[in-house]
Design a protein around this nucleic acid. Structure first.
Length: 597
DNA sequence: ATCATCAGCGCC
DNA sequence: AAATGGCGCTGATGAT
């Protein structure tokens, strides 16, 4: 399908076109990892609406299926897997238009975790369950090529049959519940993720190895020092560190503003870095030990990361991760590390610059949605003050600092930053001065605050909240306590903002940018996406064209898509930041606001 | 020996 | 009776 053309005027009507339901059985090394050359497709089964077909044979024997997948709606359960195999079989992923029955089911589930395995979903729609013999074989690690052909064929045909039935039922349900648009948005991202995952990221050995050596030596020095003083303490054990701090050294446990001791969720004594920083030291020796413990914690975290990254440099030199599309409550992505267990969304900022492009003289580029959640909150609340602040580039943290200071608590802009958007997350507790700021925030941005209050009221009435995209969050049995506090307040205030920003707007931007880069036949390619950003390896001659494509994709295309699919007039300027450097996160950031037209 | 849970820490 | 959201990974711990 010509998806780029489709994206000019996107519509959920696309899903009434012809479809192909597809399922592969593959060799099972690394769970059937499509990028492992030791794996192959063993069996394909498919349906284009009349009957289920199947064929044994590798990815080199399915040209006709690939062609159908490029022309029809591709229906599959966990389609990213099939797409990665299809790409290996020669499919042009830019032509994929997907209905992923797993993703669709996840959309219906909203923020309530449900099981999404094909058999589980089938059962919920009243369809027959998986045949247990083959299921046990596969779960037990038997390679599908060792399962009797007739059994495997029956299994694969079953998968296609139920996937097709589920698709039909889900489609009807999506129409009834007004969720076709959300499903479209989620599914448009699937081919992009299938492609990005194949790239991985490149650690630069010339930077990783010295960083590793330095941190290892520093950590060794600290460990030696601590070993002399407290030979029996395992510094990785919060329990043992707490015993040392509170029983041996008699530190007082840290309390909140009301004087209550701050405990771990399980009721234990805290021994994390912020707590240790907050400990009151009386002697110089105490102060020195406090610093040592903190430093050890920091260094050991860094060392774990650098050890893994160094190993990657010494082996294949490409770091891979998986994007999980159906995990989070707000429907943003999560990611998991594969071989080296480094996920792509939580690398320490200072170590981003350890990554380079794989080709000489290329750059690493990053584009992100500037102040995205604040802009989304401003839109959802139709908050004129917030919009004016965004347009005028007002430094919101200065207001935070001055409000807290004039309420009698000395603070700096840096310290105040932590409080600026806390009300956006539904936060309300703190010192008197901090509370004064939260009130001031509510008064200043009354549109946002009123809207959040409406969400809370809606959840109290209905146990759920429908957002402007048709997506629903569920908080059943939400009650108001005698004091007036409503259960789940913080989630109710935050989820709709986080979700619209990072599960709709950014994916839309990434989808447009990806398709445009492919259509322009650029050599540059995407390698990662983190909630509000996309990271690319960029050919030096393509920097300017990517900047332009990025601006258009993160702004105009988003306005256009939201209008076309959801009938949302997004009347708040979106912003984009762009950075290009020899390594990730290096280079000067350029920011731009773009008014909706 | 293996598993589940907790606490801690990194990111957006 | 809690009062800032969302994740994944490691190592320690205690239960099975």
């Amino acid at each position: 399908m010509d998806v780029l053309k489709f994206l000019e005027a996107p519509t959920t009507a696309v899903y009434s076109q012809d479809y192909i339901v597809l399922d592969f059985e593959t060799n099972s090394v690394e769970k059937g990892n499509p990028f492992n050359p030791d794996n192959s497709i063993v069996l394909s089964a498919w349906s284009t609406g009349n009957n289920v077909n199947h064929r044994f044979g590798s990815e080199y024997s399915i040209h006709d299926i690939v062609q159908q997948c490029e022309e029809r709606i591709l229906v599959a359960h966990n389609a990213k897997f099939e797409l990665q195999w299809l790409a290996r079989a020669g499919m042009d992923l830019t032509r994929a238009m997907v209905w992923d029955t797993m993703v669709a089911e996840y959309v219906f589930a909203g923020n309530t975790g449900i099981t999404l395995g094909l058999g589980d979903v089938a059962a919920r729609y009243g369809l027959p369950g998986k045949e247990s013999f083959v299921e046990r074989c596969i779960k037990g690690g038997v390679d599908p090529s060792d399962i009797p052909k007739s059994f495997l064929a029956r299994r694969c045909r079953y998968d296609v049959y139920v996937t097709e039935q589920i698709f039909k039922k889900q489609y009807q349900r999506a129409v009834q519940e007004g969720k076709l648009g959300v499903i479209l948005t989620r599914c448009l991202l699937t081919p992009v993720l299938a492609d990005i995952e194949s790239s991985g990221m490149i650690p630069d050995p010339a930077k990783v190895l010295p960083a590793y050596t330095e941190v290892r030596d520093q950590h060794d020095a600290i460990s030696t020092e601590l070993l002399k003083q407290y030979p029996d303490v395992n510094w990785n054990s919060p329990q043992q560190v707490a015993t040392l701090l509170y029983d041996v050294l008699k530190f007082k446990e840290v309390t909140d503003v009301r004087g209550n001791v701050i405990k771990t969720p399980g009721g234990g004594r805290k021994a994390d870095a912020p707590t240790i920083i907050a400990l009151k030291c009386r002697t110089k020796a105490q102060k020195e030990l406090q610093a040592l413990i903190l430093e050890e914690a920091t260094l050991s975290t860094k060392l774990k990361f650098l050890t893994k990254l160094k190993l990657c440099c010494e082996n294949e030199g490409v770091l891979h991760a998986r994007f999980n599309q159906t995990i989070t409550k707000t429907h943003r992505l999560s990611s998991s590390g594969t071989k080296y267990k480094i996920q792509f969304q939580n690398m320490a900022r200072e170590y981003k610059s350890l990554f380079k492009a794989r080709h000489d003289d290329w750059l690493v580029g990053e584009q992100d949605g500037a102040q995205l959640e604040f802009r989304v909150a401003a839109f959802l609340g139709q908050d004129a003050v917030a919009v004016a602040d965004l347009r005028d580039d007002v430094d919101v943290h200065t207001f935070t600092a001055s409000t807290i200071t004039s309420a009698g608590q000395d603070t700096t802009r840096q310290e105040a930053k932590a409080h600026t958007f806390k009300p956006l997350y539904g936060g309300s507790s703190g010192t008197a001065a901090e509370k004064a700021y939260y009130e001031a925030f509510k008064q200043k941005y009354s549109g946002i605050a009123d809207t959040q209050q409406r969400w809370i009221d809606e959840v109290l009435r209905n146990g759920k909240l429908r957002t402007c995209t048709g997506f629903e969050f569920f908080w059943p049995r939400t009650k108001m306590s005698r004091s007036g506090y409503v259960d789940n307040t913080s989630s109710i205030c935050n989820y709709p903002v986080q979700s619209f920003a990072t599960a709709d707007i950014i994916p839309i931007a990434v989808v447009y940018l990806w398709h445009r880069m492919k259509a322009a036949k650029l050599q540059s390619f995407m390698v990662n996406t983190i909630h509000d950003s996309v990271i690319m390896e960029v050919h030096p001659d393509e920097v300017n064209v990517i900047k332009d494509l990025g601006v258009d994709s993160f702004t105009h295309s988003v306005y256009n898509y939201l209008k076309s699919v959801y009938n949302i007039i997004f009347n708040v300027p979106l912003g984009i930041g762009s950075k290009f450097g020899t390594h990730w996160s290096e280079g000067k950031e350029e920011k731009l606001n773009v008014e909706p037209s």
